[in-house]
């Protein structure tokens, strides 16, 4: 009976983190928020496609041990249109012209180390693998054209963390891919190679074929960076909440010019263990 009581008390203290005061190395986080996109892709249109969305979601895992590692996954959907949706007819049958649909997926893997630690700030630098996959459906009334833009890149990152008070922290980060495998829709939307890729009629095979049709580029052909600013409130040693702002920039003139800015404001939550 005594043994059971002791074990129970030890177990309860472990859950509450009182048994041993260890720094928590791992954290799982999520973020949700709003995003504003301005994108001009001359393969598909001479116009800037602008849209505001509340559909911006992300997950992340961070480990702070001898090295700093982070994996983030993010998704946004945008539906821009030059004009608002409108009705038209096809031999008298009413139809509707809908907006384009852009689906943007981001995956980042960061590995770094603390290089400078002051009393109230820490600087972490390292390398990044960044995958940026964009699948678009451009809708032109009665039909649509599929478009894609994908970068798989390696580069550097830097993150400065400022401890404002015991519970408040401000993080600033810069992700800078320097070399990437860039895959993009052909000059005039589709060509024979593009169509041949579809011919497998398998989503995965087609996707891999699109990626395979890319080329290796460096900063002269592709300029892209993510700049982030996040305020974090440490509720306790396990939970933290925050609000963040991110700017994503993409410019490339491989084939035809693409210029894209995405500004996002996100609420985040984090659980450390």
């Amino acid at each position: 009976m005594n043994k059971i009581l002791v074990l129970t008390l030890v177990f309860i203290n472990m859950i509450n983190g009182h048994a041993q005061d260890k720094p928590r190395k791992n954290s799982l986080g999520f973020n949700v928020g709003a995003s504003y996109l301005v994108r001009q892709d001359l393969i598909f249109s001479p116009f800037q496609h602008k849209d505001f969305t509340l559909g911006n979601f992300g997950l992340n895992y961070t480990r702070r041990a001898s090295s700093y590692q982070q994996i983030t996954l993010n998704y946004s959907n945008f539906n821009p249109m030059v004009l608002k949706p409108y009705e038209f007819s096809d031999h008298g049958e009413t139809q509707k012209a809908y907006p384009h649909s852009f689906n943007l997926f981001d995956f980042d893997y960061l590995v770094g180390k603390k290089v400078k630690k002051a009393q109230r700030s820490t600087l972490i630098v390292g390398g990044i693998f960044s995958a940026n996959i964009q699948a678009m459906n451009y809708v032109y009334g009665r039909f649509g054209n599929f478009g894609y833009f994908s970068t798989l890149g390696f580069g550097v990152f830097a993150q400065k963390e400022f401890l404002i008070s015991k519970r408040n922290q401000l993080d600033v980060s810069l992700h800078l891919p320097l070399i990437a495998w860039l895959s993009r829709s052909p000059y005039l939307v589709n060509d024979d190679e593009f169509i041949e890729n579809i011919g497998s009629h398998s989503g995965i095979k087609t996707f891999m074929s699109y990626l395979g049709d890319g080329k290796l580029v460096t900063w002269d052909k592709l300029q892209t960076f993510d700049l982030g600013l996040r305020h974090r409130y440490n509720y306790n040693d396990k939970l933290a909440f925050g609000v963040g702002y991110t700017v994503e920039f993409i410019h490339s003139y491989l084939s035809r010019d693409i210029l894209s800015f995405r500004n996002s404001i996100q609420l985040s939550g984090e659980f450390s263990f």
Binding site: K160, I164, L170, L229, Y245, V247, F261, N263
Partner: peptide, 20 residues
């Protein structure tokens, strides 16, 4: 708030404003 942090916040927001 610390000076470097203020500068970085300002710089980030400036980049944001310039985008688009």
């Amino acid at each position: 708030m610390m000076q470097p942090a203020k500068r970085i916040i300002f710089g980030t927001l400036l980049v944001g404003l310039l985008t688009g």
